[in-house]
């Protein structure tokens, strides 16, 4: 079992409310329990074939995907429910009760983030943390302090292992 909760060093302070470190099995179960989860993948995903595979595997478990940046280039024609959206717009719409989601089926309750630039996602999560009730789960390689729950800072190979364990628990 991978422990993804050890290194939660924060490199720039932001506020008092800080993400709870989470282990992959717990994260996996949480996603499974969510009524309307959304996996949000960023363009950093494209730098690592293995990460792309993991994202597709998660999506194949029936989780809709919002592809931000140009991450969609690796996700089209993969038989998954994926749509492009700009992450700043997504962060905004997620907090709007009148938004019916990417598929018109209603708003989301759990949003999972993978494959983003750390500093960019930090900001998006800050908006979500401060202005919405959403559960934001960061399964990134870095501790994302503005998420609700986050993996700690991980080495790339440990990160991949953690994602495998998360997938097993879906």
């Amino acid at each position: 079992m991978v422990d993804t909760t050890k290194n939660t060093l924060i490199y720039t302070t932001s506020g008092r409310k800080v993400a709870k470190p989470v282990n992959p099995n717990v994260a996996g179960k949480m996603i499974s329990k969510a009524k309307r989860p959304l996996l949000v993948v960023g363009a950093e995903l494209l730098k690592d074939e293995k990460l792309i595979e993991k994202a597709i595997t998660i999506a194949k478990k029936g989780i809709p995907v919002a592809a931000t940046g140009h991450s969609i280039t690796a996700l089209v024609d993969k038989d998954i429910d994926v749509k492009y959206i700009n992450i700043h717009s997504l962060g905004t719409f997620l907090g709007d009760k009148n938004w019916t989601g990417l598929d018109g089926q209603g708003s989301y309750d759990t949003v999972i983030f993978l494959g983003h630039k750390k500093y960019y996602l930090d900001q998006v999560l800050s908006g979500i943390k401060n202005f919405t009730d959403l559960k934001a789960l960061a399964i990134e390689r870095h501790f994302m302090q503005n998420a609700t729950l986050s993996f700690g800072n991980l080495k790339p190979e440990v990160h991949l292992e953690a994602l495998d364990e998360l997938i097993e628990n879906l």
Partner: peptide, 23 residues
């Protein structure tokens, strides 16, 4: 306007720091 605070706190005056987290 869409706000994504860099810092959740305000330290503009000596009443603070004030934690404005969660609006």
């Amino acid at each position: 306007p869409v706000y994504t605070p860099v810092c959740d706190q305000c330290c503009y005056c000596t009443f603070g720091k004030c934690d404005l987290g969660g609006n």
